[in-house]
Structure formats: structure tokens, C-alpha cells
């Protein structure tokens, strides 16, 4: 799969992905499962990532719950549930190589594979997310 990238101010945004305002991305794998991760902007804000605190496989969350916590040298960030979900798989390779999140946030640096257990509506398209980023960047 080629991952077509849009870019704003040096921050990459994967075109086929959906986003949350809080910088999570969601990729529909087409079989009812989704990959989730955090955007290039988010990893660049957190800087060097060092650790991910995963939930258990099989755990369920409601939209807006904190699902995963990512930790960098001097900050930590909550990853929120984009919709009601169940955890199918977590990216355990990040335990040894958390830097993958910095190097390839939309690919090898994904966080988990999830199953939607409710409506998946209400996410931003890549273009809409770029508009949000513009707002954030203007505030900086």
C-alpha cells in the first residue's frame, strides 16, 4: 500500500487516514478492523518517544476514553478512543523500539489494531485535519 502524504509546515498527514482533533489517526483496514496511531504533528510535539503503556488485548473502551499513554523524555500524551472499540492487537515491537513512532508514525509506528463496537462516524478527513493543524499552528 502506498501511503500518499500531504504536508503542512513540515508535518506529514497521511491522505487515506481519518483523524481526531487530539491528533490520533485511524486507518480502516476494510474488514471491520482499524489501525490506530498518532500523527506526525503529535510525535514531533512529544519529541523523542520512550515508552508506550498499552491496554490488554480484548479490553473494551468507549469513545473518548484514554486507551493508550505514550511517553517521551519530558512529556506524556493520552491517546483517546476514536469510537467504541475493542483491542485486537497492540504493537508490541514499540516496547523495544519506541523510536519507530518518531521515524514512521503512520506505518511501523502504529499503536494498535482495534475493532469498532459502535458507530465510526465523526472523524476528520486528512484535509479537515490539516485545517485544524493550521489553526493550531496559527496559535503557536
Amino acid at each position: 500500500m502506498t501511503n500518499e502524504m500531504l504536508e503542512i509546515d513540515g508535518y506529514k498527514v497521511a491522505k487515506q487516514y481519518k483523524y481526531m482533533e487530539t491528533h490520533e489517526w485511524v486507518f480502516d483496514q476494510g474488514d471491520g478492523t482499524y489501525k490506530i496511531g498518532i500523527s506526525d504533528y503529535a510525535v514531533k510535539m512529544l519529541k523523542e518517544l520512550t515508552y508506550v503503556e498499552f491496554p490488554e488485548v480484548g479490553e473494551t473502551f468507549s469513545k473518548g476514553d484514554v486507551v493508550i499513554v505514550v511517553e517521551s523524555l519530558k512529556a506524556s500524551g493520552d491517546v483517546y478512543a476514536p469510537f467504541d472499540l475493542e483491542i485486537l492487537e497492540v504493537n508490541e515491537s514499540l516496547e523495544d523500539e519506541p523510536q519507530k513512532m518518531n521515524e514512521d508514525p503512520y506505518g511501523e509506528g502504529f499503536l494498535a489494531i482495534i475493532k469498532a463496537t459502535g458507530s465510526v462516524e465523526g472523524l476528520l478527513t486528512a484535509e479537515e485535519y490539516i485545517e485544524k493543524l493550521k489553526e493550531y499552528l496559527a496559535e503557536e
Binding site: Y51, V66, E71, L73, K74, A75
Partner: peptide, 12 residues
Amino acid sequence: LQAREQHIRRAK
């Protein structure tokens, strides 16, 4: 491992 501490993670 400061990121788990109060001055960074606040209430959490």
C-alpha cells in the same frame, strides 16, 4: 522517568 510524575502528568 519523569513523564509519570505530577509535574508533567498532572492529575493523571
